[in-house]
């Protein structure tokens, strides 16, 4: 029998392209590894679950010294720079034939990954259930911790 933890519990706190990408690559890979997988989206992470947002997430070049093309902050702050950095990153991903975030989200759902939206963050940020894509669970800290407390690896993004 294979050994190791049986569950993968991920927390996603940020609504940017790179963070959502890492979240969904690991969530789908976890499900493919036959681990019971859940992702808990809180605060800015809720952006990922909003209707129509998954393929519109952005990456900011501001205060991001690891961008492959170095952009000084004084330039990165100008209007349009976030859109430019996002377009650049998406074109590199496309060239490397990496799946889109939308495809990864569909794959996660197909593989039975639980997607849980943080109720408290929704209240704080004025996000309603109908603002989110269908089929999302809504729960609190206890919902996530109950899942994560049983034989799980936990990752936070």
């Amino acid at each position: 029998m294979p050994e190791g933890k049986k569950r993968l519990a991920i927390i996603c706190l940020h609504g940017s392209l790179d963070v959502a990408f890492a979240t969904f690559v690991l969530a789908t890979a976890g499900a493919a590894m036959e681990m019971e997988t859940a992702v808990y989206f809180a605060f800015y992470g809720l952006e990922v679950l909003k209707k129509g947002k998954i393929n519109k997430l952005k990456v900011s070049p501001l205060a991001n010294p690891a961008m492959p093309v170095k952009i000084p902050n004084i330039i990165a702050m100008l209007p349009g720079m976030t859109a430019a950095a996002t377009a650049m990153m998406k074109s590199w991903m496309k060239k490397s034939k990496v799946a889109t975030l939308g495809e990864l989200l569909d794959t996660a759902r197909e593989l039975g990954v639980r997607l849980i939206a943080c109720q408290m963050s929704m209240d704080v940020m004025g996000i309603k259930k109908e603002d989110l894509i269908d089929g999302i669970e809504i729960g609190g800290a206890a919902t996530f911790l109950e899942f994560a407390s049983q034989d799980a690896i936990t990752l936070t993004f």
Partner: peptide, 13 residues
Amino acid sequence: SGLACPMPIIKTK
């Protein structure tokens, strides 16, 4: 062929 991580593993599963 041509697919990047994690798709080969997902399609294999």
